[in-house]
Amino acid sequence: MEKDYFSEMSTISSAPAPGMHQIDLSKLNLQQLSKLKQQLDQELNVFQDSLQTLKIAQGKFVESGESVEKITPETKGKTILVPLTGSMYVPGTIIDTDNVIIDVGTGYYAQKDIEGAKDYFKRKVQFVTEQMEKIQMMGIEKSKVREAIMMMMEMKVQAQAQAQKATAS
């Protein structure tokens, strides 16, 4: 059910976190750089996981939205199979084709008419998509920083090797 995804849909702000400040990468030593890279890798992993979860949530909302489309006044009185569990069904009849009950999170379910339900799922899909875009943008930024760190590390290693060579000869 969608319930578990509500918590994942936290509003993601793209503003820099307090305490974040600019660092001159060239002033860090190799150890600090690799630590920073590790940190970034971890953050990027969290982003990937969040994206995955949001994608699943998005899929569920899209699916529900499509499902609502199928309920029209013509479906009134038609029989359907109602899933009791994932693998057991009982026959049922659609009586009310005007309203559906939607899980809105934290255990609350609200009755909405078909138009309202369509609007609800549309809004949710849009919201999730926005959050995903935000994460993607943040991921791109972090990847850039990560690349810069990698480059700086490479430069430092080379400089070190050259210095060693110079003292050896």
């Binding site: 009950i101 999170g105 609200a110």
Partner: peptide
């Protein structure tokens, strides 16, 4: 999110709690 959703509901809308 739930608060927002509840505020969008019409006065006579039915609400259930699981």
């Amino acid at each position: 999110a739930v608060k927002e959703e509840l505020s969008l509901l019409k006065k006579d809308a039915e609400v259930y709690k699981l």
